[in-house]
Amino acid sequence: MALPEKQPVQKKFIDPVAVKKSISQRLVVNNITKIIFLIGLLFGLVVLGILLSGVVRDGAAWLSLDFLQNAPSRRPDRAGIYPALMGSIFLMLLIIPMIFILGVGAAIYLEEYAKKGRMTSFIEVNISNLAGVPSIVFGLLGLTFFVRNMGFGSTLIAGALTLALMSLPVVIVSSQEAIRAVPQAMRHASLALGASKWQTTFKVVLPASLPGVITGIILAVSRAIGETAPLIMVGAAIFIARAPEGIFSEFTALPIQIYNWTSRPQADFQGLAAAGIIVLMVILLTMNSLAIWIRNRFSKRY
């Protein structure tokens, strides 16, 4: 290090020569760390790549139309995923209206109607904490309340209600964000035309926030459909040969079926599990892309 020579007359605290020297060094450090940071980021992407390619490698051979149409079987070559696939689709169809009505209703209340106060902030803190409760605890709630107390048994409706309650906090928060993003000027325009509060909310605010709301709901549903633990708690059947016939019939779902195959030691069943994962991932990625598309298509409209 070239320290500045002590010159009592012209005292300079910053020596340009030293700075110039150190700059190149600092830039080297900067560039090296930049690469390290990039590697950190790429790690996640690489893992995702390995994961997906590994699953495809293991499972592609087992994918066929029969696989989608058959019931699970002890003989791997005959095993299929039909009841689980239908179970997951039924769950989805049940969950969507539940979380749409409850989630958007709650979000509208909190953003448009609630007065700032103890009750409102209590509800909001409660929602954010609920979002952090592990899914298996929701499973315990479902098992106790829906399966036993309400007497639904291990049925589709018990599973759907459990997953809906679990998804609700996420839906509320994302809907609140979408509603908050609607400019105040829209509400004023409507109110100034003599529209009532509810008319303004229902005819202006809700339609304007709908893309954001729907994006949030799709993401929440795709989360819910991939959940295993709560369904295990609710008692979704491990082995079931038929698609559910109504909301009160027993059911299984894709993650449960995948878990069942994964936990068997034979390699063939691992392949079936991988094939099941492919089906699940295709559904989830489609939903995610749809959500991202909606978000980009309708963003920045005001």
Binding site: A185, M186, A189, A192, V204, A208
Partner: peptide
């Protein structure tokens, strides 16, 4: 009726 500072049509 009222007209605002910023144009505020509905989307």
């Amino acid at each position: 009726g009222m007209v605002f500072q910023q144009p505020n049509p509905f989307p």
